[in-house]
């Protein structure tokens, strides 16, 4: 199955969501069937308004070994974090 039905990663934009979120993965023979399958596996309770599927093989991920090099430095430098600005009430999604 793994050869004929490659793995796809599924991203769903929810009813009130602003962005597509990764929800899981599935197997399908091609992109169209992956969308069909994603609809059946992940969206049957009105979860979504949009589906993206992408072959798992096409995703490049950061390596856990690079964690400190990529993510650590900013932690000790509070001036890098934009937390000093009072935000207006109306901005709910930031």
């Amino acid at each position: 199955m793994s050869k004929e039905w490659p793995l796809w990663e599924v991203f769903i934009r929810s009813q009130h969501g602003l962005a597509h979120k990764h929800v899981g993965s599935l197997h399908a023979p091609d992109a169209e069937m992956a969308i069909n399958n994603a609809r059946d596996v992940y969206t049957r309770r009105n979860e979504g308004v949009g589906i993206w599927v992408v072959r798992a093989a096409d995703i490049v991920s950061s390596s856990p070994g690079d964690k400190s090099a990529l993510f650590d430095p900013a932690n000790s430098k509070v001036y890098r974090h934009p937390t000093f600005f009072p935000m207006p009430e109306e901005l709910k999604n930031l």
Binding site: L26, H27, D40
Partner: peptide, 11 residues
């Protein structure tokens, strides 16, 4: 025959 098909048929 596959998890995806199983769910689709029951749906």
């Amino acid at each position: 025959p596959a998890l995806e098909e199983d769910m689709a048929l029951t749906n």
